[in-house]
């Protein structure tokens, strides 16, 4: 392999420090899925259009299909597999289940990660803010209504916990 194509990266994935050799043309999505078996993030388009691959990069949700793995050197990555507590799933996950926000489920991990980032930044979003925040995560099954309801419900519960 020609020098320069392979890179050592160090990053934190779901709280665990990792070191890995990656090819410059590998995306973060590919590395998470293939090296770490974190297949919660999905490839729906590979072009930044669908949001199925959403993960948090240093706290902000991004399309991991458009992030090169080398770019993630020194970064903190959070995926759907990393948000549950030891004995219970995250309130957003719980609300998605209870409110019928999950149908085929392919968009779900990405949706939840976007919602997670939203509620971190804005614990009390109104409906318009939720719709806007979710606009980069396509869902073909639900028509979004129950997803929006779930995010609202999760916000309420999380606030209750904090307050």
């Amino acid at each position: 392999m020609k020098k320069g194509f392979v890179h050592e990266i160090n990053f934190t994935v779901n709280g665990i420090k990792r070191a890995l050799s990656v090819h410059s043309n590998e995306t973060l999505l590919k590395v998470l899925r293939e090296h770490y078996g974190l297949t919660g993030a999905k490839e729906g388009c590979g072009g930044g259009e669908c949001g199925a691959c959403t993960v948090l990069l240093n706290g902000s949700p991004v399309n991991s299909c458009l992030v090169l793995a080398v770019e993630a050197d020194n970064a903190h990555i959070l995926t759907i597999e990393g948000i549950a507590a030891k004995d219970s799933i995250h309130p957003i996950q719980q609300a998605f289940i209870e409110y019928g926000a999950v149908q085929c489920g392919f968009c779900t991990p990405g949706m939840i990660m976007t919602a997670y980032a939203l509620l971190q930044k804005n614990p009390d979003p109104d409906e318009a803010q939720i719709k806007r925040a979710l606009s980069g995560n396509l869902c073909r099954c639900t028509g979004y209504v129950q997803i929006i309801e779930a995010v609202k419900a999760a916000a309420k519960r999380m606030k209750g916990k904090r307050g």
Partner: peptide, 9 residues
């Protein structure tokens, strides 16, 4: 511009 996800990058 793009989606909120695009804009973070």
């Amino acid at each position: 511009l793009g989606s909120p996800l695009t804009r973070n990058k």
